[in-house]
């Protein structure tokens, strides 16, 4: 029952410890407050996957439910999972408000509680990309997908706005050694290595989600308050270092900002993936 793979290489990170910390980070703040703005990416992914009514869909690390709700609106049979119960509860309230039937499970993306070949579609928008053991998570997505089924994802790219934000955060808090940046999932190389040998076809397309906020400071205030990973970073820094991080983030926003009226209009690149098993 234990995962002996942890003991094979001395350099292997302690994924359990990392995951526990992550679970706390994502559970802190209130991700839903910022996550809900990303709804369009879930809708877009379901269209790119050409979901058909009645198909089964598993949303992995589904968070506050953007992709789950989008799939349920297309009359698919949806199971939504996440390891943060408060996010699932938020998703559940959204589904109830919209009169949508979604099943929920609290689950770890690296150890999914489903039989092999169970789902017509396995999806994740900005979710699975944050798991520490990336190849294990990739193999779980493939395992539970039916042969001929589809795996669909939306993953931030390294060079996009959020990818650059991760790099800045990494300058203030060292990521755990041996763990790749989440934006590795937004590269075709990663997909070819991890999905390639097990899938018949991989289509990926560069897309942009646009952050539209009242001002750069408005974005920073909301993300520093509600976005667990950024909140936790600020919490770990003293006041002057925190102020420096704020300046770096505001400079980054300025670099990407397309608005000239004081508001924020920042397109953030992500890779939309549809793989056929």
């Amino acid at each position: 029952m234990t995962n002996t793979a942890h003991n094979i290489q001395p350099q292997t990170p302690n994924y359990d410890v990392i995951k526990t910390k992550q679970q706390i980070a994502w559970g802190s703040g209130d991700y839903s407050r910022v996550g809900v703005t990303l709804q369009i990416s879930g809708e877009q992914l379901c269209e790119a996957m050409d979901l058909h009514a009645g198909q089964s869909v598993l949303d992995v690390a589904g968070g506050n439910g953007n992709a789950s709700l989008a799939a349920a609106r297309r009359f698919c049979k949806v199971i939504s999972t996440d390891y943060v119960p408060t996010l699932l509860a938020h998703s559940q309230r959204r589904a109830e408000a919209d009169g949508l039937a979604i099943e929920y499970q609290q689950a770890d993306a690296e150890a999914l509680p489903f039989s092999d070949n169970s789902f017509d579609n396995v999806i994740s928008t900005f979710g699975v990309m944050f798991t520490p053991n990336q190849s294990q998570a990739a193999s779980e997505l493939i395992r539970v997908c039916k042969p001929g089924g589809k795996i669909g994802m939306a993953n931030w790219t390294p060079g996009g706005f959020i990818g650059e934000l991760f790099k800045i955060i990494g300058q203030y808090i060292s990521p755990p050694s041996g763990v790749n940046s989440p934006s590795t999932w937004g590269t075709t190389t990663f997909l070819e290595n991890n999905f390639g040998p097990h899938t018949a076809q991989i289509k990926s397309e560069s897309r942009h989600f646009t952050f539209r906020y009242q001002s750069p400071q408005h974005w920073l205030d909301l993300f520093a308050t509600y976005y667990g990973p950024l909140l936790k970073t600020f919490e770990s820094l003293d006041e002057s270092t925190g102020a420096k991080l704020s300046t770096d983030v505001l400079n980054l926003i300025q670099r990407f900002n397309k608005a000239d009226d004081g508001t924020m209009v920042v397109p953030s690149e992500y890779l939309e993936i549809v793989a056929v098993k």
């Binding site: 029952m1 509860a89 929920y104 499970q105 609290q106 770890d108 509680p113």
Partner: peptide
């Protein structure tokens, strides 16, 4: 096999080893 009981809380199965 593992002699584990996964709780169901508020109708949501909690499928985590911890």
């Amino acid at each position: 096999a593992d002699r584990l009981g996964f709780p169901i809380r508020d109708g949501i199965p909690v499928m985590l080893e911890d």
